[in-house]
Amino acid sequence: MEKNINVTLKIWRQVGPKEKGKFETYKLDNVSTDSSFLEMMDVLNERLISERKVPIAFDHDCREGICGMCSLYINGHPHGPDGEITTCQLHMRNFKDGQTIVIEPWRSAAFPIIRDLMVDRGAFDKIIQAGGYVSINTGGVPDANSIPISKVDADEAMDAASCIGCGACAAACKNSSAMLFVAAKVSQLALLPQGKVEAAHRAKAMVAKMDELGFGNCTNTGACEAECPKNVSISHIARLNREFLSAKFKD
């Protein structure tokens, strides 16, 4: 049932990537438990604007859990304590009256802070640009049904492809490893005959770019999978390892 709660917010404020940041504390009363977490942030920002203060910068866009734009490390978890959702799908009913909520940006050397809770995840784009595609041009492709693909493989590829590129995996990982993100793309395309052709090259190129951009080494803690809003499985990381190692041994 809907009710109103009072919360205390400890929010990270930082002007730019080089400046020093710090926590600011805000008290917010009468927050509807039916509102989403970001709507609560909107209400806070409206208040700050009315007080002629600079509102808190945070990334968000679709607000339905698919674009991957929203981030936020809430009370020790990327996308908050509730499972299998993004921050924009988190609702205030997950918090108690009087609770203190700590809100931090994604922290990782590869995701520099732009302002407050906004970080630069361009590294993920660069990894995809290194090889997260099938090298075909528009037109001249065979009929869609010319190559049958087993439902099992197609479904598993779909599970991997459901990654939204939000960065929660690297943010949650104690090593700030991007392996789940990379594995999701490598695995999706390696499972499909269309992507299999250049699977070896892809795995090598994407891993090399990931390493170059300063992400850490995967130590199989599984924190990525546990925090992934789309529940992408670390079994894809095993497939990435397999693809990468077999590619390297073939060289």
Binding site: K10, Y73, R107, A109, S176, S177
Partner: peptide, 9 residues
């Protein structure tokens, strides 16, 4: 890789 500033929580 984790970066200079650690999570507070």
């Amino acid at each position: 890789a984790r970066g200079a500033v650690k999570y507070a929580l």
